[in-house]
Design a binder for these strands. Structure first.
Length: 458
RNA sequence: GUGGAUGUAGCUCAGCUGGUUAGAGUAUCGGUUUGUGGUUCCGAGGGUCGUGGGUUCGAGUCCCAUCUUCCACCCCA
């Protein structure tokens, strides 16, 4: 028999890992709730047609498709055999009707359109569920991972952009992550750049090229622009973007000059300015906000603000993302509804906390008191155990009659803070010997004294 | 999807130019005289050397394929 193993890019989670992960979830969740978001869940799988075309061509290839089964599959296979000139994408659509969700935003858009009559707009929802991507795994990149999304749909107010920046700051501060940089851009600015270069249709080529600026440098970006067929005149207009520096305000002022010929570009600047001023006024706890013209992100449904959050000095890519999408629900038939949202990458945050050694110790997460087994009749201990549990103490009784040494080792391995030595005599005399596993000290106590001691120490 | 590296006990690794029953540390289990752990000492179990082929008298060690993990690209949380 082959060694048991799991598919690549997936992971098992042991008890200690679940504790750590729940710590992240709980932190994110409580902030979501504080900002007024309500929880929903959607199925792991969606209809394939719901997902395709929303993430760009690359994204479509990364969607896990679910093969049809039984008679449907037979029929589909026959159709594939009989049809000529099929592309890979077309074959997939014949053979597969369903797929695992790729993110939480598109299923949410589908949800909103489907339940529009039951929803009071603006609708603020949060959702913490796994997503799947048929990617090639690497560090911090999995094929099954959790996203924690908060979105507002049905409101154009820039208030949300401000609040999302605060939300990033609050959550990541509560997790004690240092050197957090929230990068912000606006799709309208990118459109403006494309417009003034006279290459409006080439916006994707331009943005994906300049997106690499901090990674490969200005020279290589120019090379890539040339390679992508962008004209010299256009490149001359784009070049000044590479060495923008100074304060936020100075950069924005310079951007205004560069984009003076583009109405949409100036609109983007205006929006950003409003958001930045508000954020500056209110102040952030630990994160730093940065304007980054090169920030593009592949998701082609963004229309306004674009967010990306990174941690400086850590070998893991961005830990959060988000932005405004003005017409995502339009694809599902509900027009003119603007949405804006963010996503926390729980697994990457986990990796960051692990790398920086920032997880707290989870004391008392499980058993707090172990009662030893001296081989007495278990039944007479059940009232004692019940009383302890009723008093709010996580209690377990060692189930088997084994050497005390082994019971102590068990308590040690499970990090149980207290051990109670209780035999028939102790019950009879209402005197129990309580041992503090940290200090090794043990004292003889009555039941009430014992409860008080335990409550005071856990 | 493209290119590169990797894979030996649960974990971290050793194993020289192919040569007899594959080692260490750590973890696990048992014992150290039967009601006390995290430290000592003794002992045990555990590996078809990722998997499948091939070369050879003989392969953990060479060749091919395949899978895993990691790195770069692509993309992204």
């Amino acid at each position: 028999m082959a060694k048991p193993s799991i598919p690549k890019g997936t992971r098992d989670f042991s008890p200690s890992e679940i504790l750590k992960r729940n710590y992240i979830f709980d932190t994110i969740k409580s902030s979501f709730i504080r900002f007024g978001f309500l929880p929903i869940e959607t199925p792991s799988m969606e209809k394939l047609e719901t997902l395709t075309g929303k993430y760009g061509e690359e994204g479509d290839n990364l969607i896990f498709k679910i093969l049809n089964r039984g008679a449907k599959l037979d029929k589909a296979v026959r159709k594939v055999e009989e049809t000529e000139n099929l592309t890979q994408g077309k074959i997939e659509h014949i053979l597969c009707a369903e797929a695992l969700r790729y993110d939480l935003t598109v299923p949410f858009a589908r949800y909103v359109v489907q339940h529009q009559n039951d929803i009071a707009f603006p609708f603020k929802r949060f959702q913490i569920q796994p997503v799947w991507r048929a990617d090639r795994p690497q560090k911090g990149r999995y094929r099954e991972f959790y996203q924690c999304d908060a979105d507002v749909i049905g409101s154009n107010a820039l208030l949300h952009e401000i609040e999302f920046i605060q939300l990033f700051d609050e959550v990541l501060s509560n997790l004690h992550i240092p050197k957090v940089v929230i990068k912000v851009n606006n799709r309208k600015i990118l459109s403006g750049i494309a417009e003034i270069t006279g290459e409006s249709e080439r916006i994707i080529d331009i943005t994906t090229a300049i997106d690499k600026l901090d990674k490969i440098g200005a020279e290589k970006v120019v090379e890539e622009l040339i390679q992508r067929g962008i004209g010299d005149d256009a490149i001359d207009i784009i070049k000044p973007l590479f060495d923008l520096n100074g304060s936020l305000q100075e950069i924005l002022t310079e951007m205004k000059t560069i984009l003076s010929g583009s109405e949409i570009g100036l609109k983007g600047i205006e929006e950003l300015e409003f958001v930045f001023n508000a954020v500056e006024k209110i102040g952030l706890r630990t994160a730093r906000v940065e304007f980054d013209v090169t920030l593009a992100r592949g998701l082609n449904y963004y229309t306004g603000a674009i967010f990306e959050v990174k941690v400086e000095g850590v070998s893991i890519g961005s830990i959060c993302g988000g932005g405004r999408y003005d017409d995502l629900t339009g694809i599902f038939g509900l027009k003119n509804i603007s949405g804006v949202g963010i996503s926390f990458g729980a697994d990457r945050i986990y990796d960051v906390l692990e790398e920086l050694n920032l997880f707290p110790t989870f004391k008392n997460a499980s058993t707090q008191l172990l009662i030893t087994n001296f081989g007495d009749d278990v039944v007479q201990f059940l009232p004692l155990i019940k009383q302890l549990r009723d008093a709010g103490i996580n209690t377990e009784y060692y189930p088997d009659k084994v050497k005390l040494q082994k019971q102590m080792k068990y308590a040690d391995a499970k990090a149980i803070p207290f051990v109670l030595f209780a035999g028939e005599d102790e019950i009879k005399n209402n005197t129990y010997r309580l041992k503090n596993m940290d200090t090794g000290a043990q004292t003889d106590l009555s039941f009430d004294e014992m409860i008080n001691t335990l409550k005071a120490n856990i």
